[in-house]
C-alpha cells in the first residue's frame, strides 16, 4: 500500500480550488455507464465525498462501457466502484447504498449533497428522480443525461440548463435493442456531467 500524501496527489491542482472540492458532497444516482465514469472523474478531481446508490450487479455486458473489470463480474456495482475509487485516491470518501432508488428513499439518501447527478439508464427512472428531487429541493442542482446512444455525432452533444436542472446529451439518441450504448459517447456525456459539477462548485473562484 502506497502512502501517497495529500499534497502529492493535489500538486498539479490549482491550489485555490482544493478546499472547495474537498468540502463538496456529490450524489450519484446509478453506478452504470454514466455513474461509474462520473465517479472516477470526480475522484480524480478531488471531490471530498461521493454518495453513490445502485441496486445492480456487474454483468459481462456492462464491461463495454462501465468502469469495472472482469474479476468483478457478479459483484454489486456500488461495492466494486467503491473499491476502484479507493485504489485511485484516499482523498474522496465514498458512501454506498445498494438499493433500488424510488420516490421514498431518494431524499433520505441524498438530502445532504450539494449537487445530484442523474446516472440512470431508463427514461422513466430519470423522470422519477428529477420530479422527486426538484419537488423537494427546487434550488439544488440536478445534472441529468438524455440522448447518448450509438456513436459519433459529437457535434450534437450539448448542455441545456433550465434553472437548476441541467441536461447533457443530444436529447434524441435513445437506447433501443438496435442501438446500444457504447463507451465513447457514454464516457463523453458522463464527463460533461462531471465537468458541470466542477463548474457549479467553482463558479465563484
Amino acid at each position: 500500500m502506497s502512502s501517497m500524501k495529500k499534497e502529492e496527489f493535489f500538486s498539479k491542482h490549482d491550489q485555490r480550488i482544493i478546499p472547495k472540492l474537498q468540502r463538496a458532497v456529490i450524489g450519484i444516482a446509478g453506478a452504470g455507464g454514466l455513474g461509474s465514469n462520473v465517479a472516477i472523474s470526480l475522484t480524480r478531481a478531488g471531490i471530498g465525498e461521493l454518495i453513490i446508490a445502485d441496486f445492480d450487479k456487474i454483468e459481462p455486458s456492462n464491461l463495454n462501457r462501465q468502469q469495472y473489470f472482469q474479476n468483478q463480474i457478479g459483484l454489486p456495482k456500488v461495492a466494486a466502484l467503491k473499491d476502484n475509487l479507493e485504489k485511485i485516491s484516499p482523498f474522496t470518501r465514498v458512501k454506498i447504498y445498494e438499493v433500488k432508488l424510488d420516490k421514498t428513499n431518494i431524499i433520505p439518501i441524498f438530502k445532504n449533497v450539494d449537487i445530484l447527478v442523474e446516472a440512470f439508464d431508463k427514461s422513466e427512472m430519470k423522470v422519477m428522480l428529477i420530479e422527486t428531487w426538484l419537488g423537494k429541493f427546487p434550488k439544488k442542482p440536478i445534472i441529468a443525461a438524455s440522448g447518448l446512444a450509438g456513436w459519433g455525432k459529437n457535434e450534437l452533444i450539448h448542455t441545456k440548463q433550465i434553472d437548476n436542472l441541467l441536461i447533457c446529451g443530444d436529447e434524441e439518441s435513445r437506447v433501443t435493442e438496435a442501438i446500444s450504448p457504447l463507451s465513447p459517447r457514454v464516457g463523453i456525456i458522463a464527463n460533461m456531467q462531471a465537468n458541470l459539477v466542477l463548474e457549479l462548485l467553482l463558479s465563484k473562484i
Binding site: 439508464d121 431508463k122 427514461s123 443525461a145 435513445r174
Partner: peptide, 26 residues
C-alpha cells in the same frame, strides 16, 4: 409541474413553459 398535475395546471398568459424530453440510456 409534476405528471399528476398536468390536467389541473392552467397555463397563464405570459408563461414560459419548458418541456424537457428524457430518453433512455446510461
Amino acid at each position: 409541474i409534476k405528471k399528476n398535475e398536468y390536467k389541473s395546471t392552467i397555463v397563464y398568459a405570459g408563461a414560459d413553459v419548458k418541456v424537457i424530453h428524457l430518453v433512455s440510456g446510461g
